[in-house]
């Protein structure tokens, strides 16, 4: 499974939606994922890809990880997987 598909599956599960309802330009807010849901999604992503995501819930904008849309999350995960598996 592609990274993108797995990330969408995780986000969809968190949002209680079908993966087909999650588009790349969806924001977490639109999907109804709150801060606790975000932290849980990041945990699931870390477990799925065996990576560590640099995310601090206190300072999302300062974390080296862009959560502004599904696309930015997927891009961030792809980068982390490439770096941490290298």
């Amino acid at each position: 499974m592609e990274i993108k598909d797995k990330v969408i599956e995780i986000i969809a599960e968190q949002a209680v939606l079908e993966p087909s309802d999650v588009t790349m330009d969806s924001t977490l807010d639109e999907l109804g994922i709150d801060s606790l849901g975000l932290v849980e999604s990041i945990f699931a992503i870390e477990e799925a890809f065996d990576i560590s995501v640099p995310f601090n819930a206190n300072a999302p904008q300062e974390s080296d990880f862009d959560i502004s849309s599904v696309a930015s999350i997927v891009a961030g995960i792809e980068k982390l997987v490439a770096e941490q598996k290298a």
């Binding site: 932290v39 990041i42 945990f43 995310f55 601090n56 819930a57 206190n58 300072a59 300062e62």
Partner: peptide
């Protein structure tokens, strides 16, 4: 796990606080 802890210090009320 909750990602609310600071790695570098406790800075209450300061704009650069991080947990």
């Amino acid at each position: 796990g909750l990602r609310v802890m600071s790695k570098d210090g406790c800075r209450p009320f300061s704009a650069n606080r991080n947990g």
